[in-house]
């Protein structure tokens, strides 16, 4: 499956039309409680990640929840 992630075209052999957003996060080795994800311009709340299916060509934006800055 081809996905546009943060503006970059990526190919995922392990993902298909039955895969969900949660499968993509697993494929990217991302921990679910520290990212926000948008699919085709709509934010997908964490509670809907396992039931939100991916489609070929989806435009995905992922932003990490970062805690640093001060030290």
């Amino acid at each position: 499956m081809q996905l546009l992630i943060n503006g970059q075209q990526r190919e995922f052999a392990e993902l298909s039309e039955t895969s969900a957003v949660s499968d993509l996060l697993a494929a990217l080795h991302l921990k679910g409680d520290r990212v926000a994800l948008e699919r085709n311009g709509e934010i997908v709340p964490r509670s809907a990640w396992s039931e939100t299916r991916l489609c070929d060509g989806d435009k995905i934006e992922i932003v990490h929840f970062v805690g640093g800055g001060k030290r």
Binding site: N6, A36, L37, E38, E42, I43, E61, I62, V63
Partner: peptide, 8 residues
Amino acid sequence: NEWSEVRT
């Protein structure tokens, strides 16, 4: 050089 944005 990745920029990303999620609508809020």
